[in-house]
Simulated scan of single mutants.
Amino acid sequence: MRLDKFLANSGIGTRKEVKEILKKKKISVNGIFVKDGKIHIDEKKDVIKYENEVISYKPFVYIMMNKPAGVISATEDSHHKTVIDLLNNKYRTYDVFPVGRLDIDTEGLILLTNDGILSHNLLSPKKHVDKKYYVKIAKPLSENDVKTLENGIKLGENFVTKKAKIEVISKDSHENGNNQVYITISEGKFHQVKRMFKAVNNEVLYLKRITMGNLLLDQNLKLGEYRELTEEELDKLKF
């Protein structure tokens, strides 16, 4: 691996910043100061230091975020703030991206990473990764509504949802008569949850994703906050 790429991927700085750091002789490889970022190093064997501190190479990062409404699940956008915009400079050299998407007005769990293989596995229809949402809807569901949603519902000409799971939290909510439910689905079609409830003549008033696979949203994360996954959490996501 090229030294400049190693340094950028280790969070030392952008490629431009790394170039300046190298010029100032702040990087050593096996005890020798190096100014040329084009040289190749062995990230597993060579000892790379920045200002005499050993750099521990970390090729991938995995970030759990509690996405707020008004922020889009994209890497860049000219009109709206993105989930990437919420990250601090520590992660800007890793080229992370959101795994899947949440609608702009949907809150909750979203995973950010630069690990393409993990992202593919979590999003692949063949893997059937469950996503659980907390939903506030305009009116209580009837038993028939629940059965319809759980057994699969036709959305559009060529799409029938897979079996879902509905958990009714309260049929007698005091919040303007709104009902509250959890819905678990294994797909992620455009506006799918909203469209499913619309198909049973209901309306989603609030939507928040709380799980993705075995990963549970950290309740200590406030809207817009994030943290890296623990090793235990990451192990739960791997196939």
Results as ranks from 00 to 15, higher is better:
63 I>P: 11
166 I>S: 03
90 K>M: 12
24 K>D: 12
45 K>G: 08
169 I>V: 15
167 E>H: 11
219 Q>L: 15
180 Q>L: 12
164 A>S: 10
27 I>T: 05
160 V>P: 00
24 K>N: 13
223 L>R: 11
200 V>W: 02
103 D>V: 11
189 K>S: 13
10 S>A: 07
43 E>M: 01
68 P>N: 06
66 N>D: 08
89 N>W: 09
32 I>K: 14
118 L>T: 00
80 H>E: 15
145 D>I: 00
23 K>G: 14
171 K>A: 04
146 V>W: 00
73 S>M: 09
170 S>I: 02
43 E>Y: 07
127 K>R: 14
225 E>A: 12
194 K>P: 10
139 K>E: 14
110 I>W: 04
207 L>I: 03
3 L>M: 05
57 Y>Q: 11
46 D>W: 02
112 L>M: 11
157 E>N: 14
230 T>H: 06
10 S>P: 06
22 L>Q: 05
189 K>H: 15
63 I>G: 12
102 L>V: 07
232 E>H: 12
132 K>A: 01
1 M>P: 01
213 G>E: 03
149 L>E: 07
204 V>E: 04
200 V>M: 04
80 H>V: 07
88 N>L: 06
202 N>Y: 10
137 I>V: 11
162 K>H: 08
39 I>E: 09
228 E>R: 05
41 I>Q: 02
88 N>T: 13
101 R>Q: 09
22 L>C: 10
93 T>Y: 00
154 K>A: 14
7 L>K: 01
120 H>G: 04
173 S>D: 10
160 V>F: 02
38 K>W: 05
132 K>E: 14
31 G>N: 08
134 Y>T: 00
152 G>F: 05
236 K>N: 15
210 I>W: 08
186 S>K: 14
42 D>R: 00
